[in-house]
Design a protein around this nucleic acid. Structure first.
Lengths: 167, 167
DNA sequence: TATTGTTATACTCTATAACTATA
DNA sequence: TATAGTTATAGAGTATAACAATA
């Protein structure tokens, strides 16, 4: 019952920080969707699905299970992403010749062009969102966030390996 | 703002930063659920729903519409949160005497105890998650995140105003 | 028996559109 | 007409459990 407010010096509460992260993530998803849509990216091409495409693009034929581990999600979730992307004709399932239980993922012919377009849009949208942050802030942010979670996963669908226009 | 990226490996890409935020949020949600569950909080008492309860607790009878604005979500989303919480007997809808279109939200008698328990659990879980961060890092993080999003909303379900055990 | 992937099911969060009741 | 809230519907993300095929 005794309401004891900590003095300002104590810093933000953990709840506050957590809340800010969650809200930022929500905000980002929102902006990403709006921005992508404005740039002509179909709405089914969401962030997680793009990361799936990006991973397949980067690693070539990859097992669904491996992809799940790389993305830090369950196999069933990958199944569902793949279902959606296969329905849109962006990737296909192939039997793994070395293990008939396994399934390899491969991009279709139409995928790379759309993926590149989406990457470019993503670049624009995310750059715009991160514009208020100096490079130092971005590094700090990454550093701080890396302490919260276990980031063994690669950052899929990044644009580091896919420089297109810029030198 | 000369926020143009110097060439080379000067810093993380915007995509990287965005990705890290999203993954951190996901990680947090995960940990929050696991931790809450371990501490005996029913699984229907999710973060957003707790924020609803927290807001009603803090602001007393509040209109659903006002709550939606405070939380930065749509009225329909509030409706659905309230449906769930009312079903669990944690809050009730009351007619607003000043406007018969409007609905006020109020906690039930059983809510405060559970809310307090959930708050305590939240405190523990979030503190544990944020443990690797120094106070300075937390402040930095909040500062940086605040530049990304528009944080006009109050931070509901925070524990700043509800110190219970600690003295 | 263990692993890979799927089907079936469920639940949360969020939303738009159309609607009712009231202002 | 405009506002407060609801119903109906949808879709995205995520998950568990039970299962099939294969190892």
């Amino acid at each position: 019952m005794e309401s004891h407010k900590p003095p300002g010096e104590a810093g933000p509460t953990a709840s506050e920080v957590v809340h800010a992260i969650i809200r930022t993530a929500h905000h980002i998803r929102h902006e990403f969707e709006a921005g992508s849509s404005a740039l002509g990216i179909p709405s089914y091409l969401t962030g997680p699905r793009l990361r799936v495409l990006g991973a397949v693009s980067e690693f070539g034929p990859i097992r669904m299970n491996d992809l799940a581990q790389k993305m830090g999600i369950r196999a069933i979730t990958v199944t569902q992403f793949v279902d959606a992307l296969e329905k849109e004709g962006l990737l296909v399932r192939l039997p793994d010749p070395t293990d008939r239980r396994a399934t390899l993922l491969q991009l279709t012919e139409t995928a790379p062009a759309l993926l590149e377009k989406a990457r470019e849009a993503s670049r624009q949208v995310t750059e715009k969102m991160m514009e208020p942050l100096s490079m130092e802030m971005r590094s700090q942010l990454l550093d701080i966030l890396s302490r919260i979670g276990d980031y063994k996963q690669v950052c899929l669908f990044d644009d580091k390996n896919v420089k297109s226009t810029e030198g």
